[in-house]
Design a protein around this nucleic acid. Structure first.
Lengths: 354, 354
DNA sequence: CTGAAAGCGCTTACAG
DNA sequence: CTGAAAGCGCTTACAG
């Protein structure tokens, strides 16, 4: 393949000038730039990323770490982040933890990411103290999405999970429900970490605000997935008298709950109302009421906040200034909290609405 | 950060020996290897990918191109491919085309991938002649998943879409349906390309085999998505007397169809049966009958077939020999066709089964 | 089994 | 605005 020397020779300039012209640096005369661009095009020259990275010290690459790309929220975040990153000229290295602890360690604890990327985006990734130490040693800019993985010095984009859960529970209370169950993520689950804790807190807060003491027998833990929702709901039903409503910690669990209820011969919403959190693509098809969160926007905004200090690769500044999150005392930016909204569909109704 | 010289000095060997020892080359004595490994660990040495790639000529990276990571099939394929690739020591560069023609051109037609990756995995990516020319010039090993994107010399992993569609349609015929509609992908849709053509062909073949002449008014095109299924079904219902059954070209379209039928006051399956193709995660929750395809296995197998000629990065050979697809006359390997299976749920029943 | 040295293909001070 | 030269940090023949 053609190298930078070939272009330089054809354009009659030095390789340094080719390098500058091709990257759009301002210190090249218009005439020279044109000649270089023409030569590069004629030779179908493409810069060698390895050489460029080694010499320049920047990789033009970002690592995006997600628990499971097959889940709605993570796929949606990645899609939006990908668009922004590639638009800015960055490559996206995908790491799917898949709940495998050893993979997490390989990605986060070894110096694997060292010199491989210019920045890291951690989506809902549970972080242990050892991970934080390793990340700090990497000394790379990063950003987290979703609560739970706070890295000192990194900005964070997320929703207010406590408030979202409160809103979901309050919707059920407003409909007249008193016996409201909660189906949520397991603390042992690598994927759920603190998100489910926040959502449980919101659930309990809303109940207490309505004068109801949370009933532990109505609070079941399982995995943060369709299957987890099914299992948790089956367990709930096995415990005795069913609740009149279920607040599931995410839409996928809610869908699993609906499935389990149907299998048990209970109708939604006539016998049991169900609400989730997310705004999943398929919530509409299933008639699932939910607290919708802006997943794509979180991905896009996170990509942007990550790149802001790195600078675009393409030269162009990003359209419109991103709101740089204000920093707290210790220099850690304040989390950027995006709004959620209640979407009422057919899965929620007043109790006993036969 | 520590460089290879630091390790060499500490271990009392040359950098060449460090390089060999760390990569597990056999030409290093056990004692030396141990000393090098100890030194590397003590210094927390991590090789610089850029330098290694530039010197070695291999990137240890694979590009995975998908139409939309948010769709079930693509996310599932990527998840499985990711696991295999990372397990073999390769990085995964994700490209999400997102239906944007200009993105496809930037990825496939420019020499963007040149020197950036060692191999390319194209998942259901529509390829124009100009794309094929560009890919050939890249001169990289590659693999395609899903029919439609045949690249000369590249192996292909897929299902038999015609047979899958035949099986779906036959299931409806076997139940006694005669008025069977088809809801499928639009030829203008960048994402669907030939998959929907094959599935339509299977639909028609099954009808004809049953002595039924395909009725164009029962064949509606739309996008290969939930929304597309909804729109197509609404259009179908607007045309007059509804069919007694719908074969949707994928599960997401089938889900959209179910949603549209419900909105029109029609019950599934009492008034209209619905079947899809995929085996989507949520098919069970929705009670959707489908022709299930092994998506994860396609991703895993494709990753493996792609890496086989490249050799693992970690040194270990892959467990068990992959079945190398036999080549045709022109050297293009025969496609590897994976099996599908009919999964009957509640969305299909005999017509008029009130 | 090991080392000295060249070279991978760029970018970046530095000098002009 | 432009060029000569050093250097980025490895790997790979080559020689021993």
């Amino acid at each position: 393949m053609t190298r930078i020397d070939d272009v330089a020779r054809l354009a009659g300039v030095s390789t340094a000038t080719v390098s500058r012209a091709l990257r759009g640096l301002p210190t090249v005369s218009a005439a020279t730039r044109l000649r270089v661009l023409a030569a590069a095009e004629q030779l179908e020259y493409a810069v060698s990323p390895s050489a460029s990275r080694l010499a320049g010290g920047r990789t033009g690459t970002v690592a995006v770490v997600v628990p499971r790309i097959t889940r709605w929220f993570f796929a949606t975040v990645v899609e939006a982040a990908e668009e922004f990153l590639h638009g800015a000229g960055y490559d996206l290295l995908l790491y799917n933890l898949g709940g495998r602890e050893q993979v997490r360690q390989r990605v986060l604890r070894t110096a694997n990411l060292h010199k491989r990327v210019d920045g890291i985006m951690l989506v809902a990734t549970p972080l242990r103290p050892a991970d934080l130490t390793a990340l700090a040693r990497l000394d790379l800019p990063g950003i987290t999405i979703s609560s739970g993985s706070h890295v000192p010095g990194w900005p964070c984009v997320r929703i207010d999970d406590v408030a979202a859960a409160r809103a979901a529970t309050r919707h059920l209370l407003d409909l007249g429900h008193r016996r409201i169950a909660h189906v949520s993520g397991d603390p042992e689950d690598e994927l759920a970490f603190t998100t489910h804790l926040d959502r449980r807190r919101g659930y309990r807060e809303a109940l207490r605000a309505a004068g109801i003491t949370p009933d532990p027998s109505l609070d079941v833990e399982s995995q943060f997935s369709i299957c987890g929702g099914t299992r948790a709901t089956a367990e709930l039903l096995a415990r005795g008298e069913p609740p009149t409503a279920i607040f599931a910690a995410c839409d996928e669990m809610a869908m699993g709950a609906i499935s389990a209820l149907r299998d048990a011969g209970l109708r939604v919403p006539q016998d049991v109302s169900v609400i989730g959190v997310d705004g999943h693509d398929l919530a509409g098809v299933l008639g699932l009421s939910t607290i919708a969160q802006p997943a794509a926007e979180q991905g896009r905004l996170a990509a942007r906040l990550l790149l802001d200090p790195l600078g675009g690769c393409g030269g162009e500044p990003f359209p419109g200034p991103a709101q740089p999150p204000r920093a707290d005392g210790d220099g850690t930016p304040r989390p950027v909290i995006l709004p959620t909204r209640l979407v009422v569909r057919e899965s929620t109704a007043p109790p006993g609405a036969h």
